[in-house]
Structures are given as C-alpha cells and as structure tokens.
Amino acid sequence: MWSRHVTTVLTVLAVGTASALMAPGTAAAAAPATCTPTKLPLPAGMTEGEIGAADSGSGFAGRVYNASTYHAVRWSGGKVIDYGDLPGLTATMTVSGVNRSGTLVGNTIDRDNSKAHAFRSRDGKLEALPLPSGIQSAFPTAINDAGDIVGWGYGSGGPSIAILWPASAPGTVVKVTGGLPTAGSSRAVGIDQDGTVLVNSYPVGNGTDPNAVYLWRAGSARKLAAPQGSTRVRGDAVSQGRVAGSASPADGRGAGILWDKDGSMVRPEKSGLLYSVNSTGQSVGFEPGGTLDEPLVTGVWQFGKETASLTGAEIRVAVSANDGTLGGSVRDYDVYRTFPTTWRCG
C-alpha cells in the first residue's frame, strides 16, 4: 500500500541522460528526477482547498472550504483572492475554469441537491449565469481569455446540451448547434483561445459514455478521428488546437489520446486517460490500472513521451499550466485535511 504521509519531495520517473557509470552496451535507464510540491495559502477561516483550473499565465483557481461552507478562490503571485459563494445555494462547489484576467467559472449545488447553478465571477464576487429556455441545471466547464464560457446543462427528463455564454454578448446564452448530431446529448468541455469549442457527443439513451468528439466553431463542427474498434471516445481539454482525451475499446481498457493540431492521434506511452493539456503540448492524466490499495498513477507527458509520474492516494493533480507547473491537491492524513498544491517537475 502507498504511504499516506505527505512528503516534501515526490520521486518521479523522468527522461534523462544515462549514468556515466553504465557499462558499454547497457540500455539507457530513465534518470531520477523530482516533482517539488508547494502548498498554497488559504483564506482566513478556511481549513482546506483544492486547485481545479489554471489560467493562461501563472495563476490557478479552485475551491476552499471549512465545515460549513465552500468559496471560490484564485491564486496569483503567491496570494489568494476569495470570491465567496452564491448565498444560500452552496451544498458543494466546483471551480472548473479561470482566465488570465481572473474571471472564474463553475457551479454550486442546492442544499437540497436538486439543481446545479452556473456562476462566473465579476467585481470580486460570484454571480449566476443565465440559462437557455428549458434548462434547469448547468455546469460551466471552461473560459478563454476573451471571456467566452462553455459548459452544458439539462432540463427535466431531457438530454444534456452544450452551452455557450459568448463574451461578445454579455448576459446572453446560446445552445451549441450546427454540425453536431441532432440526436442524443452533447456537452461542451473546453474552449480554445480562438473560440473553438470542444464537444463530446453521446448516443441516444446513454448519458455517460460519449462516442464522438467534435471541434465546433461558429456553427460548424469537425469530428475527430477515433482509434479503430473504440466504443467510447471522449475529449477533456483543448489548448492551441490540441485535444487531450481517451478512447476505450470493446474490452473496456482505456488508452490516452492526444489529438494534434492537424487532427492526427498521438498515443502517449503508458497512458490510460488524458484530462489536461497546456499550450506546449504537455498533458496530464492517468496510467492504466489502479486499485483501492494501489491507486491510479498520475502521469505527465510531452506529446507521446512520459516525462514524470506521481504516485499516492493522497495526490490529486487536476491541471497542467502553460508554464509546466501542475496544480491539484494533497490530502494530509496526519491531520485529515486537503491542501491546494502545485508541483514543479525537473
């Protein structure tokens, strides 16, 4: 079983030069390296926190909490900015996106667990986002530096549908349509700086297993290629035209996929799922496998090559920032508290 103690330096696997002491003809081994964690500050009165998103600079966003409430926060320049919550609505909160200007997006859940309320930040506090007709719950997933927000929502008994809150028309919301399947469900899960939206498409009657991935912009969409024999294909993040995601064949074993700018597929070594990619092509995800006693290993890849891996039940890496920093959280089982954490690997 993995150690449950938070360490100050995490040993990782990284690509490097072979040792000078290796005998001639010996295969080069991966050189040891370290990922060094840094615990981020918490606002007064908050006891725990988690990073959920990175902006296009060097800032992060996420949630902090105590025994009675959740708040949305941003970390920038070593400081934490507290945006509070949506009063009366927060049983729990997710912060899913942040842009360079510091606008946060996410959702809160009613205390009776009946609805999800989409929010953005403005003037230092959170405000509810408008919903399309027929949509009762909504989940923003990403925001770009222009301020365009994407996500998805659903109504009573209906399918989920991809949603766009355009920065060019503040206070409005539109359903993402055109070039996408008209049957089944759709969910917008990412947006690039040029406004291209990453959309997962779900077949009729299946709201959990997407079977197609699209890049949508201005009413037209391009379907991304999928590995032959895949029954489940999903995208999770888009940056500079590259998409991080995964595909599963009929036997259920997943494989991480990085779609490059031209739509070609890269199959990163030892990857089972990719869920974040930055502007340089660095992605984060999971290696295959994992059990309750030996949890999933978080991997870091540069295109097809794994450059680092972090192991431990206490570690949760959420995102790769554009400068290569990783953001997430560490659970300290000595005090039973979770702390927002960044890592630099190298």
Rank of each mutant, 00 (worst) to 15 (best):
H5R: 14
T231A: 07
W152V: 04
Y214N: 05
W2Q: 13
T342K: 07
T342P: 10
T69L: 10
V15Q: 13
S201T: 14
D145T: 11
W165D: 08
I163N: 02
T36C: 03
V9S: 13
S137L: 06
R63H: 10
L86I: 15
A29S: 12
A67K: 14
T311R: 14
G263T: 02
K115L: 15
T231Q: 12
D332V: 10
R232I: 14
A226N: 02
A30T: 08
G124R: 04
A188Q: 05
G178H: 00
W301Q: 06
A28H: 09
P210L: 02
V277F: 00
T341V: 12
R234S: 15
C35F: 01
D334T: 11
P41Q: 02
L292F: 13
G52D: 00
P140L: 04
S156I: 05
W152D: 07
L89G: 10
I315E: 03
G256D: 01
E269L: 12
F339L: 13
A23E: 06
N278E: 05
D82F: 01
R253C: 00
G16R: 01
S279T: 11
Y83F: 15
G229R: 03
D192C: 04
V176N: 02
D334W: 01
R74P: 09
G106F: 06
L180K: 01
I149D: 03
T8K: 12
L89H: 09
N99Y: 05
A18W: 03
R222M: 12
V266N: 07
G59V: 05
G49Y: 07
G229Q: 05
L104G: 04
W75A: 03
L180Y: 07
D110P: 03
G106T: 03
Q240G: 13
I149C: 02
T338V: 13
G78P: 10
R316S: 13
D334R: 14
R344K: 15
G245N: 07
I135C: 05
A33G: 15
G155L: 04
A72E: 03
K270I: 12
A23W: 01
G327T: 09
P170R: 04
R217S: 13
G229T: 06
S160R: 14
S19R: 11
G179Y: 00
A142V: 05
I135P: 06
A31F: 02
M93D: 03
